[in-house]
């Protein structure tokens, strides 16, 4: 992969940061309010050098589940260094065709200026390091507090667009067996009573 500059750090992507909002279960075009549930995400690991993130995702009022369902996810940052706009993995080959990728990325208005390049050559030469948005994929790996019979599936993954400016998160869940374009909308949470708090840990 070409030696692209790494994106500079962003404090909204610091470990411990939390985000809250909703996920629409039915497709975004036909969304009805009762088919949305509350979601809370917490970032637990972030290694920009490797384009790696991970965290937990909590679905709060899922009709099919009695308690909030927590999953652990791992994410890839599209940095043209570790990862590109093309997914190229996770599940069967038909799943992650390039058209599927472009179709999903195109749901984000901030992708529009990049679209032509991505369609041409995967956007590999784009300078994403200084772009005001991070594009990512989040893939849930396992259920933390419930069994796999909890009524939810983690077969798919999220296409994510993350705003450096205010830490807001937009995403679309992709799983060919679920309804298309399930929309995720999250805002950065302030951990303090009136302000942003930052915790920190460091591996020894």
């Amino acid at each position: 992969m070409p030696a692209q500059a790494l994106p500079p750090p962003c404090t909204f992507l610091a470990v411990g940061q939390a985000f809250a909002g909703t996920q629409n279960v039915s497709s975004s075009q036909t969304s009805r309010k009762d088919e949305a549930w509350k979601v809370k995400v917490q970032l637990q690991g972030c290694d920009i050098q490797r384009g790696y993130l991970c965290g937990s995702m909590e679905a709060l009022n899922v009709p099919a589940a009695e308690i909030p369902v927590v999953t652990f996810w791992e994410g890839e940052m599209v940095d043209n260094r570790n990862h590109t706009f093309y997914t190229g993995k996770w599940d069967a080959s038909f799943l992650c065709r390039r058209e599927t990728d472009v179709k999903h990325w195109s749901q984000f208005p901030s992708f529009e200026p990049l679209r032509a390049d991505v369609e041409k050559d995967g956007g590999r030469s784009l300078d994403l390091a200084n772009y005001p948005y991070f594009f990512m994929r989040w893939k849930e790996k396992f259920f933390v507090n419930v069994g796999t019979d909890c009524g939810l599936t983690i077969a798919g993954f999220y296409y994510i667009c993350f705003s450096r400016n205010d830490g807001s998160v937009h995403g679309f869940y992709y799983d060919p067996n679920s309804s298309p374009f399930q929309k995720l909308e999250l805002k950065a949470l302030m951990a303090g009573q009136s302000g942003h708090c930052f915790a920190s840990y460091e591996f020894a």
Binding site: G192, Q193, G195, S200
Partner: peptide, 17 residues
């Protein structure tokens, strides 16, 4: 680290600020 201590305190109530 010290400045983040202040920053976290400043996210508290009026007295903390």
């Amino acid at each position: 680290q010290g400045v983040y201590v202040l920053s976290n305190i400043a996210a508290g109530n009026e007295l903390h600020k």
